[in-house]
Computed example of a mutant assay.
Amino acid sequence: MANGDPGFDLDAYLHRIGVTGRPAADVTSLREVHRAHLTAIPFENIDPVLGRVPSLAEADLLAKLVHSGRGGYCYEHNTLLGAALGALGFGVRRLTARVVVGAERHETRPRTHMALLVDVPGDRRRHLADVGFGAPGALVEPLPFVADAVRTAAGRSHRLTRTRGTGPLDLWALDARGAAGWETQYVFTEEPFERSDIEVVNWHIATHPRSPFRSRLRICRTGPDGSVAVLNGTTLTRTPPGASGTVREVLGRDELHRVLHEEFGITAPEDLTAAVRPAEPAG
């Protein structure tokens, strides 16, 4: 389990996510911090789209996601959350997962997602925490690490199921319930990954020519009314809690920066529009 960095600016982080006071290292605070982070800091992959590898150094994450009002993708979000939880006194283990939404076989997907396994002092239950999924099936609050236990928060229901994988460790699946029933979001084992492992995966996913994070802009914010997202720089979508429907709006070439500022609080680099080349509205 990772330990907290004594130099981590916890006060600035808590201010950014709107949490007052100093949360205790208990389940209630874990849920509060997780939900507040997810709501306050958007998911975005602007840097990889612009050909830049996001830094996972805690000072750089604080500068970008906390002080500059930007967001990030899973490695940035969950590295930042892990540092904050460690500073609050929680035990944190880094996990990697295979995103399998729409996949016929789990084994065909690489481990390109990061999540956290959290130990709460004085509590035998561990929790899966993840504020970097960037999709309607994302966790709103940490999920107790118990097979088949359903938890609902902000209109979203999740559960963990456990099966025997191809290796020696049990394979866990995070399922989200939508309009069509349960759908697996990603699968993972409990094997811990070190910071150096995450650094390598982060570089690969930000630079590989076939990586969707390099080629397709995705920005997402989760709130009490569901999620709002910009896809490919051309479409604004709104999805109610439970992923029961989506409203789509085509964005014009000159609208992207305005939408990012108004919907997500992001002041994007000036060269973003040229990089994603948004389509003109139809008609």
Rank of each mutant, 00 (worst) to 15 (best):
10 L>A: 03
10 L>K: 04
12 A>G: 03
17 I>G: 13
21 G>Y: 00
28 T>Y: 09
29 S>F: 10
40 A>K: 12
44 E>R: 02
45 N>C: 04
48 P>T: 13
48 P>W: 01
48 P>Y: 02
49 V>W: 00
54 P>D: 09
59 A>L: 06
63 A>H: 13
64 K>F: 15
66 V>G: 01
67 H>R: 15
69 G>S: 05
71 G>N: 14
71 G>T: 06
80 L>Q: 15
82 G>R: 09
85 L>M: 13
107 E>T: 00
113 H>Q: 06
120 V>W: 02
124 R>H: 11
127 H>T: 10
132 G>Q: 13
132 G>H: 11
133 F>L: 07
138 A>S: 09
139 L>K: 08
143 L>I: 03
145 F>R: 00
145 F>V: 04
159 R>V: 02
163 T>V: 05
165 G>M: 05
167 G>I: 02
175 D>A: 11
175 D>C: 11
176 A>K: 01
176 A>I: 13
182 W>I: 06
183 E>M: 12
187 V>W: 07
202 N>D: 04
211 S>P: 00
219 I>Q: 04
227 S>R: 10
227 S>W: 04
232 N>E: 02
239 T>Q: 04
240 P>E: 02
240 P>Y: 14
242 G>S: 08
244 S>K: 13
247 V>N: 10
248 R>S: 11
251 L>G: 05
257 H>F: 13
263 E>H: 11
264 F>Q: 01
269 P>D: 12
274 A>W: 07
275 A>Y: 01
280 E>M: 14
281 P>S: 14
282 A>C: 15
283 G>I: 10
